[in-house]
Design a protein around this nucleic acid. Sequence first.
DNA 1: CCAATTTTGATGTACGTAAATCAAAAAAAT
DNA 2: ATTTTTTTGATTTACGTACATCAAAATTGG
Lengths: 341, 341
Amino acid sequence: MRPTVHDIAAAAGVSLATVDRVLNQRPGVRHVTREKVETAIRDLGYVRDVAAANLAKGRVYPLTFILPASDNSFMHGLNAEIRAAIARSAAERTDIRIVEVPAFDPQALVRELETVAAERPSGIALVATDAPEVKAIVDRLVHDGIPVVTLVSDLTGSLRHHYAGVDNIAAGRTAARLLGRFLGGAKGEIAVLAGSMLVRDHRERLEGFASVMAQEFPALHLLPVLEGRDDPEVAHKLIADALGKNGGIIGIYSLGAGNRGLIRALKEKAADRALTVIAHELTAHTRAALLDGTIDAILNQDAGHEVRSAIRVLKAKADGLAVIDAQERIRLDIFLKDNLP
Amino acid sequence: MRPTVHDIAAAAGVSLATVDRVLNQRPGVRHVTREKVETAIRDLGYVRDVAAANLAKGRVYPLTFILPASDNSFMHGLNAEIRAAIARSAAERTDIRIVEVPAFDPQALVRELETVAAERPSGIALVATDAPEVKAIVDRLVHDGIPVVTLVSDLTGSLRHHYAGVDNIAAGRTAARLLGRFLGGAKGEIAVLAGSMLVRDHRERLEGFASVMAQEFPALHLLPVLEGRDDPEVAHKLIADALGKNGGIIGIYSLGAGNRGLIRALKEKAADRALTVIAHELTAHTRAALLDGTIDAILNQDAGHEVRSAIRVLKAKADGLAVIDAQERIRLDIFLKDNLP
DNA sequence: CCAATTTTGATGTACGTAAATCAAAAAAAT
DNA sequence: ATTTTTTTGATTTACGTACATCAAAATTGG
């Protein structure tokens, strides 16, 4: 049987109350006594029964998710997954709140973080805008003992406890290799459609993509990045223009959202051309395009996994428990038409 | 606040004891009373606090994993992941046992299942050998109320509650498309190295692979399957022979284990040839081969995820709870050298 | 209508921990 | 040595559920 507080009390030769004081870092325990108890804890391999503890404490984990108010499929999906987690709140002892802030606005994010922190939640998950002032306040929250995880987009060099998202540099590199290999040894131009170079994840994807392209596929030439602002209309125009003007384009990498516009442009302008296309994020549109051959591969991050992982990590950090690293790694999904879920 | 047994007792106008009788299907409750209580449960949206219930019951989940005694990296990894789960037993209230049975021996598996079932565990996870007698006993166990999940390899048409493994047909199809696309429009022969055609997952991978090859890449011709019995030595010999005799081989799909032998053969015989190689299972060997360019892509199933998923599902089934389907889907990982974990 | 039976209620204990109170003991300060 | 302060012990209640027991009420059978 696994040891209980009674067992450590007996082993350490102290009372239950003292064990409790040590376990819950209450004052009034002499140093030597505390050490006796801690030794007993280690010797017996005692681990607090979190379920029983939470029951006794009547504990719930108030968690706050801070998301950019972006109107694209991915953010909608992320929102839906958080709401699904809210529906499971009772069983998971969580009390999850979603807060939206203007996208790409560090100041707004900072203000919201301050507001949220004032409520002393058990944890905060945020889609980070990569700015120094955001890093500063995140570091302060961590310092104040509030668990913080970044979601989808990370925060360079910050003290956040965890990042629940994919490695975007690896994603870009993977896209490059897939595109390069799919194109065989062909020579030609590659168009890159991004949302905005102001967003860290897009920058990183491009960085990874460009680096593998340059190193390993010199026959392919990258055109200047098209910034579609994750907007289908803008994306449509940019891609249609590019395809119209440049007959040498043989591949496209769409590393952001707004793929609806991309797909439309492809169907209008490139039905006859043998284009190889790699896009990010599996949505109803990209899925259909993958199945009908308009897109050749989709790179995806599973929003559901990201949300569940963020919650698990925040709860674990709030309890000072370890996380299973391998379980919390968010993988880059590569979908061909054959392995769609 | 979420409702408790006290709340339903009050709402139904009965005593706590009666609510308890209904909840735990104890006898001595009139039909009408039972209905009153069940209505209250539904109206208030009561869900049993599993943590508190388990605490009260002093419940542990005795789970048994039945694995084939195969000496390959994947099974070793699977074993290690189960042992890691055993290390977490205390926190997860599980009591996990690993049982090994001779590989590919339905009778032995049936006997072991009978022995294990006699101990009435909370759940059984097994790497199924796909045989009618195995299906029969699994169906019987399910019928007797023992949760059963298949692991890695499924059992056709059985009543098992869940399958914790990848879709192997999709895996084969994906391999075919990757190989076909990587080879551009080239014409040539494709060698397929399997473990044994007696194993369901290998058969399915081949089936998916062959079907996409035939449909979409007619320029590529499949050679007869080489059965390497998941043994590095055998695999080495088979591949070395094939490469020696057949100069037309331009691609290899290794859908089983024993990749150590494959890799050695490739380095000896094909250092100069432009072979495209796709293999299954990420191990230290295949990882190194992917990085040095000997292998072009690795398809993988994450044994850790499979084990954790099997445990979650078994516990949930034992408690009659729902599972989050999306969370329990085991994904096919596609690794290029750029997105290795 | 009474007895036998079934159904229901009331109550207590337990699970492992948290948290509080008050008394007792030990240590430190005077 | 006495007082003050700190440390420790003993005990209780609570969390939400499970489970057991005994008494009381309701229902059924004769």
